Computed example of a mutant assay.
Amino acid sequence: MKQSALLSFVEPLLKLRMNPSPGYNVPPPSIQGEKELIDAAKKRPEAFEPLYKRYFEPIFRFVYQRLNDTDTAQDITQQVFINAMVNIKKFEYRGFPFSSWLYRIAINELNKWFNSRKAERTINIESEGLDDLIDEMEEDRYEDYYEQLANALADLDAESLMLVEMRFFEKRSFKEIGEILDITENNAKVRLYRLLDRIKNVMKEA
């Protein structure tokens, strides 16, 4: 089926669930029965609707936290699902949640948006996540510590910042982070702890 025909099925979906809460920490939907939903969507575009309803909110929140702009976040989230629907026949189920694939599409769309506008990346810092990050770094909270840490986070490249956000502010497991970034669970751990060491060194030199 041509893309134009596929999109005719998408338009009604885009009117659904347009007012999700933008906060962090969305419980991941159950993946029970997910393979059957994916197989059905590959055969019939209109069968994509249950996947859209299931994952719109967590994908929207993921995008919103990196933009802090509701309208733009909705536009990008819609594009994520259009891309997913058009390319769903390329998706191979390997036991990972369908959402991992959607998050990778979302990351690509976010990168395209930032690159096209040379816009600055938004960092939404919550106190609980920040405390978890500091505890993991095993650092004493000296005067100006929080300010220096915030500055260090602001200077991170997009990929490194994504890793910190997913682990400490979105409370994702290393397994899920690995699935989203398409790396192993152990690789996700190694990358994060090397990154934390780098942040500590930057702060010591500040």
Rank of each mutant, 00 (worst) to 15 (best):
N115R: 12
L163C: 04
A154C: 00
L161H: 13
Y145R: 13
K90L: 08
N187G: 14
K2D: 15
E179S: 07
P22L: 06
Y24D: 07
N83R: 14
S100W: 03
K112A: 15
S4D: 12
P12V: 01
W101C: 01
T122I: 14
E138A: 09
I107M: 08
L16S: 05
L181W: 02
I134D: 12
F96D: 10
I199Y: 05
I38D: 12
E57M: 04
L6T: 14
G95I: 05
I107E: 10
K2F: 01
K89P: 00
T184D: 13
N68A: 12
V63Q: 06
D155W: 01
Y93V: 01
D69K: 08
V63G: 07
E128V: 09
M1G: 12
L110M: 08
I177Y: 06
I180D: 10
V164C: 11
I177T: 10
V190N: 11
M203P: 02
L133G: 09
E170G: 02
A158E: 13
A84G: 03
F9V: 00
A40M: 03
S116H: 12
I105C: 03
Y193Q: 12
M18N: 08
I125T: 14
L181G: 03
D182E: 11
P22I: 00
E57T: 15
P28Y: 10
K171F: 01
S127Q: 14
I38V: 15
Y24H: 05
D157A: 06
F9G: 09
E138L: 06
L102A: 06
F168R: 08
K89S: 10
A106T: 13
F62I: 01
T184A: 07
I183V: 14
F98D: 08
T184H: 07
N111K: 14
N151L: 01
S30M: 02
T184N: 11
M1S: 14
A188R: 05
K171E: 07
I199H: 05
